[in-house]
């Protein structure tokens, strides 16, 4: 579906992206993770044909973004980080305009707009001016314009940015609903969002794909075991910690902020080599302690940080990268032979 080969993008002398090589299969939902300035938006803009690459090739559905941009654009739906909305148009007018721009035949426009309004649950505001909509609805209209022409490939840049928790859940469902009908690439800073929605993850660092794979693969490579939060009632702190540290496979146990109220309630954060949840439960119950909650922590954030280095070192690298990349040679000279990103 999408082939990216030795893709580079320079802004003046500064390398923003590259080398990037990747393949995305039809129907996949790809999550793009990375720090600010890592090159996520540049990648998405090139895939959406909003920006041209300095070198390398990107083919969408067999069409090259440089030599056949109109063919690519007809097959791509793009929601930038700020939805491109005309405040002076109603939702219906705007979606019809977007559909016509994307070559939807005039006779099919009304039907397509109705379908997409239903899909994105915009029925209540369809005749309202876009300028009067809440942020959540504006994001929905942004997604609606991206899929109104039934593109094979949908590019979403930070679709949940600025949404409240309820809107995030709704948006997650909306993005999940695109599965099957569209190939989707979505970037987000909210890492759990990526793990909830995407089939594969591309971690972008300093303009390169630092890692690509599923969350499970990332976990086995960087997760270093399992992290579990267990909340117990009864027993004193020392006894609970001793009990848990004695469980086979537990590497460390530390007291954390309790997740439940109560004087004799404590939450312990465990690091283990493998899945120790059943052994932990058994040990606590045998010792006559009540297990109130046992939760496996989502690891994605810590794994990505492990991959990119700690937050502090990542910031240092980012600052160093800016100064170094300005000194690098121009695009063509800087492209290494056979460079490969992922």
């Amino acid at each position: 579906m999408i082939e990216i080969r030795d893709l580079y993008k320079y802004y003046g002398d500064r390398r923003a992206l590259g080398p990037v090589t990747a393949d995305i299969a039809e129907g996949e939902i790809i999550g793009l993770l990375g720090l600010n300035g890592a090159g996520k938006t540049t990648t998405l803009r090139i895939l959406a044909c909003d920006l041209l690459p300095t070198s390398g090739t990107v083919r969408v559905g067999g069409y090259d973004v440089v030599s056949a941009p109109d063919e690519v654009r007809a097959r791509v739906g793009y929601l930038p980080d700020r939805p491109p909305l005309y405040d002076d148009m109603s939702v219906r007018e705007y979606l019809a305009f977007a559909a016509r721009l994307r070559r939807v035949p005039k006779a099919d426009v009304a039907r397509r707009v109705d379908e997409v309004v239903e899909q994105t649950e915009l029925g209540d505001v369809v005749h309202q001016l876009i300028g009067t909509l809440s942020h959540g609805f504006r994001q929905r209209v942004g997604i609606a314009q991206a899929i109104v022409h039934r593109p094979a490939f949908v590019v979403l840049d930070e679709p949940i940015s600025g949404l409240d928790p309820v809107q995030i859940v709704e948006m997650r469902e909306l993005v999940r609903g695109l599965r099957g009908a569209h190939t989707v690439i979505v970037s987000s800073h909210i890492l759990t969002e990526i793990s909830e929605t995407c089939d594969r993850i591309f971690v972008i660092d300093e303009g390169r794909i630092a890692w690509a794979g599923t969350e499970k693969e990332l976990s086995s490579e960087f997760g270093q075991g399992m992290r579990v939060d267990v909340t117990v009632r009864g027993g004193d702190e020392t006894r609970v910690l001793e009990l848990l540290r004695a469980v086979d496979g537990v590497q460390s146990a530390e007291i954390a902020t309790p997740t439940e109220p109560g004087e004799d309630v404590r939450t312990v954060r465990l690091s283990a080599r493998g899945d120790v949840r059943d052994a932990v439960c058994r040990a606590l119950v045998t010792a006559n302690l009540s297990v109130l909650e046992l939760v496996r922590r989502r690891e994605l954030e810590s794994m990505v940080l492990a991959l990119l280095g700690s937050g502090e070192s990542a910031a240092r690298r980012r600052s160093k990268k800016r100064s170094e990349s300005r000194r690098e040679a121009p695009a063509e000279a800087a492209v290494p032979e056979g460079a490969e990103g992922a």
Partner: peptide, 8 residues
């Protein structure tokens, strides 16, 4: 962006 990413 809407115009730039449309096939026109």
């Amino acid at each position: 962006v809407l115009l730039h990413t449309s096939p026109i």
